[in-house]
Design a protein around this nucleic acid. Structure first.
Lengths: 148, 148
DNA sequence: GAATAACCTAAAGTTCGCTTTAAGTCAAAT
DNA sequence: ATTTGACTTAAAGCGAACTTTAGGTTATTC
């Protein structure tokens, strides 16, 4: 049993445009076409699309996924490289989380700043010494050295 | 005392191109120019640049920062809106962190998958029932319903 | 005073992941 | 039989945040 591109788009929550774009980019290696040119998606194609979505959700770029497809085609001999891909990706992901946590601290500071400003007026915010300390801790850019 | 664009670029870890780009986009409201056209950055400009970097690091887009500049110009009457900006941004940041943590789980699964594949061969990975459960938990796309 | 380095503007190019447009074919429903 | 709707390709467009290129002026240094 096969599915038209429209059905698949509906199932996957993508547009037909996106699916054709993926196909054009070589991200749908096994989708066959009728003589009329109409794409015929099989269950295996749907499964691959789910894997594609999964790979996307791990933060891989489309070109990385293309590379991954090539590794898959090589079979067993690419196992190590595939494993490495995900380990690298994990490191990137960890770094991003760390950066976002730092961002959260800055946002919390800003939110407290504006609470204070709304209560006591913006000109009085830094009479609150805790906020001053917080500001100095969070926003002093270590790379910047203002000369003299 | 003023700084040339090159010095500022060096201090801030940006390129001169980026600084001119920011200026063109209206993100450096107070930078003055000599009659020759050369930009003269003051300490106040450096401080604003640090704030700019801070705002960027909170995940704000340049157009949001431009909007923020306009709010600053309005002074006191924009306090509430400015406060709202950061609260919204905090929510976005929280959501991003949540998504990345989910991503981490998927990556950990993939890494375990490849550990197992390297140990026992790719064809035997899902003889490990824990990995099967993990896969089903993480990768079953709820939106997909394969008919029949 | 001439070479070189740093500055200037304006505009086009880049990357990513699509989305949109244009122009057309094909199959089903009325 | 014709209209509607889903499919096709190919190519251009989009938004974000720069980067690069081109062509030119100014400032510093030998």
């Amino acid at each position: 049993m096969t599915y038209t591109i429209g059905k698949v788009a509906e199932m996957m929550g993508l547009t037909t445009h996106t699916l054709r774009f993926y196909d054009k980019e070589g991200l749908l290696p096994n989708v066959s076409k009728a003589k009329s040119g109409v794409r015929q998606f099989t269950d295996a194609d749907i499964n691959w699309l789910m894997m594609l979505e999964c790979l996307k959700s791990t933060g891989l770029q489309l070109k990385d996924i293309k590379h991954y497809i090539n590794l898959l085609k090589k079979g067993n001999s690419s196992l190590v490289e595939r494993a490495e891909m995900f380990k690298e990706q994990k490191i990137k992901c960890q770094q991003e989380i760390k950066a976002l946590k730092q961002t959260m601290k800055k946002l919390d500071f800003k939110i407290r700043y504006y609470e204070e400003a709304l209560k006591h007026g913006e000109e009085n915010v830094f009479k609150n010494k805790e906020l001053v300390r917080e500001r100095d801790k969070l926003f002093k850019l270590n790379k910047v050295r203002i000369s003299k």
